[in-house]
Design a protein around this nucleic acid. Structure first.
Lengths: 202, 202
DNA sequence: GTCTATATCGTGATAGAC
DNA sequence: GTCTATCACGATATAGAC
């Protein structure tokens, strides 16, 4: 049971240790959040020693930052979606994001951020800043209606709610249903928040 | 600085240690989640020693369970709301829940559960079970439309999204706006999920 | 009942051999 | 570059004095 026997993942002979660590880190952070992720486990998944994390990334913080940076930049994705105007934007937005999140490779950094933000104040700052600056801010600028910030934030809350239900808490039937089912059901919600008539009390 | 000088909260002379611990625990768990909460801090807030936690509750698990059990039972709250029928249920549901969550006394157990569920698998099980059994299940039984489970789950995802935005990540302007603003804006969303015409693809 | 002191463990980081 | 061994620290839980 205590045989050395290193290297167990699919990675055959390439000794791209750094890349292997990043890959394992994204998976672990996505599954357990920042605080819940153990460096030793990440290293074990990558088939290398835990000391290499410090060697390559300086520490846990650096590894987390590097793993998050691997995300497909959603800012340009949003820009692209916005170029087609705001008609049907809700559906298109949700469809694109679901496609991204359903793929463990590109989606786990986001799930990791949401998970980590719940218990880690710095991660919450990161997520809040990212949402406001990269996503909601851009969307708010593109919509031509009163209270664009509130509208974008409401849409964001529904998107985060979907992430929580589908990827974090895994509430059925949302967790396992077809993406298009969600697009059809909650796309209109997003569209109403963005351009529809929402009562803006206060 | 190292003077004993115990007892600092508002609780003047009653030595209800157990109650003080529960009160402090709800606040801490609500703020930092299960994993992020340190028993020493809870004890310090309560003005007693950390060892008392084990004495009264057997350990961290027991303290968490006891603190969660203090929640105003939302099952009967939902039952009461359901008695008035499903017309305007979305608004009434959201108004009642916001009133509850905005009060640190009654709302923090929920926020604590949501926070903890993000990194702690057992807390996620707890939250999922609670949602499905106590909340969404009851709501699903009360609505007379196709796919009641999906409808209830969608409503739940929007409610959790509001919790995340308002209490956990604190995204503006949702975090600080008037409750009635939210009721007016997202109440119709809930109503549509529950009884409106949502496209139920797949 | 309440506190002090301590046992025990898990984790992140580091020094140094190979 | 990579691993072994270890340190330093913080956390829960427990034994026992008062």
């Amino acid at each position: 049971m205590s045989r050395p026997e290193r290297r167990r993942g699919p990675r055959s002979d390439l000794q791209d240790t750094r890349g292997a660590l990043l890959e394992a880190a994204r998976a672990r952070f996505g599954e357990h959040g920042y605080d819940g992720t153990k460096l030793r486990d990440v290293a074990a998944d990558a088939g290398v020693d835990a000391a290499l994390v410090s060697y390559f990334f300086g520490g846990k913080d650096g590894l987390f930052a590097a793993a998050m940076a691997l995300a497909v930049n959603p800012a340009e994705l949003v820009e692209e979606l916005l170029r087609d105007g705001t008609d049907g934007l809700g559906e298109r937005l949700l469809r694109a994001l679901l496609a991204m999140w359903d793929d463990p490779g590109s989606g786990s950094p986001f799930v990791a951020l949401v998970r980590s933000a719940a218990t880690n104040e710095r991660a919450a700052d990161l997520l809040r800043g990212f949402l406001e600056r990269e996503l909601l801010g851009r969307i708010a600028m593109a919509i031509d209606a009163p209270s664009p910030e509130l509208r974008a934030a409401l849409a964001g809350s529904q998107m985060v709610g979907i992430i929580m239900a589908r990827y974090v808490v895994r509430v059925e039937p949302i967790a396992t249903c077809d993406p298009e089912t969600l697009v059809a059901a909650v796309g209109p919600t997003l569209q109403r928040y963005l351009t529809g008539d929402v009562a803006l009390g206060a």
